[in-house]
Write a protein that binds this DNA or RNA. Structure first.
Lengths: 194, 194
DNA sequence: CCGCCGGCTTGCCAAATGACAGGAAATGCA
DNA sequence: TGCATTTCCTGTCATTTGGCAAGCCGGCGG
């Protein structure tokens, strides 16, 4: 399995040189997941920092009525974790599940801390990743608040088309904050005509 | 004006000792805001890290229809900033405005970076603050998703009662994701009887 | 003391959304 | 292959929510 994606990821912030990246990459271990396998159960502490090289993962919680609500999708090149649980070492409210067979590179919290001490440039990188996670979450939150469901669907379709090929529509619906019925109507309306 | 709250804040993570806190505190400058004054305009980079010792601040964005939507309230002991903008140095989508006269202690991004270099324990503290900001945002997001508006109102009422004494209800309504009309009905229903 | 004005509530109606259920199609599993 | 399950779409109906406008109340200034 190629480390290309890992090297590319490490260099993505500009804080780590190609040589340093080649040096750090071996610390990551290969990770394989089978379809439907759980990476993380609600109540556990997220302990795996996983960069996906292939496959799709879904994160979800249960609402007060007991239904699953999808909180995120992850695809190739994205880091799969519950950042808030991982970084603060508190139990995750979310469960994460592979929607397809997946491959990637992973690091435990322990290993990451080791790297932080051994490599100052990786520590900076870690801070940057944390800041990006925050920015991503914020923009998703603002999107939920400021744009209607139909526009959010269009946006998801445009930005992560591969996800829609693997995720059941009911999961997409709850991710968008509507019922599967409504999503079906949205998709119907979006279809120009026929 | 007393630095108590600042010292207490610095020690809140357990990463900074009382002596170190007393050493770091002078780096913060006093900050005064008048009612209705803006701390940050949409499009600017959030550059001030402000710990409130008194007063209430509101953050908001504009939705696609052009209406103001409140994204957060801040009270005594809370850090007022747009973390995603501050830490990634990108323009903030949010505007922040004082709802009452405010006082607090502040640091610019520059000054904070200086402290990061000069004081390793403050760097750790900074990372912890970032992680907490992420956790806070996440839990707010999950709350929006998993609990109904009425329960969110009750929660806000219980956790930040002072905010409701200073914020107009229409701001509270948009913060909760409902119209002022609906909030009025929620409040009415909440009143046990009469 | 009076009248204006802004914030809040309330009633009425329309629109959007959800719950539920039936059925077609696709998928999984033996 | 064939049966069982899941996924998705659609129709009907009930509920929720929003838009609008009028009314109430309390503060402020003349």
């Amino acid at each position: 399995m190629s480390q290309d994606i890992l090297l590319q990821f490490l260099q993505s912030t500009g804080l780590i040189s190609p040589e340093q990246a080649a040096d750090i990459a071996p610390a990551f271990g290969p990770c394989h997941l089978r379809r439907h396998e759980l990476l993380l159960r609600a109540g556990q502490v997220s302990d795996e920092y996983l960069l996906l090289s292939s496959g799709v993962v879904r994160a979800f919680v249960h609402n007060t009525a007991g239904d699953e609500v999808t909180t995120g999708f992850f695809g190739r090149g994205q880091v799969v974790l519950e950042p808030s649980s991982f970084f603060t070492r508190t139990p995750s409210p979310e469960t994460m599940q592979a929607l397809t067979d997946c491959e990637g590179w992973s690091l435990t919290y322990q290993q990451m801390n080791g790297l932080f001490h051994a490599r100052p440039e990786f520590r900076e990188f870690g801070r940057s990743v944390l800041a990006r996670a925050l920015a991503t979450l914020k923009s998703r939150m603002l999107e939920m608040i400021t744009t209607p469901a139909a526009a959010r669907y269009e946006h998801l379709l445009a930005s992560q088309p591969e996800i829609l090929r693997h995720a059941p529509l009911k999961d997409v619906a709850s991710y968008l904050g509507v019922t599967d019925t409504s999503l079906s109507r949205i998709r119907n309306a979006a279809r120009p005509k026929k």
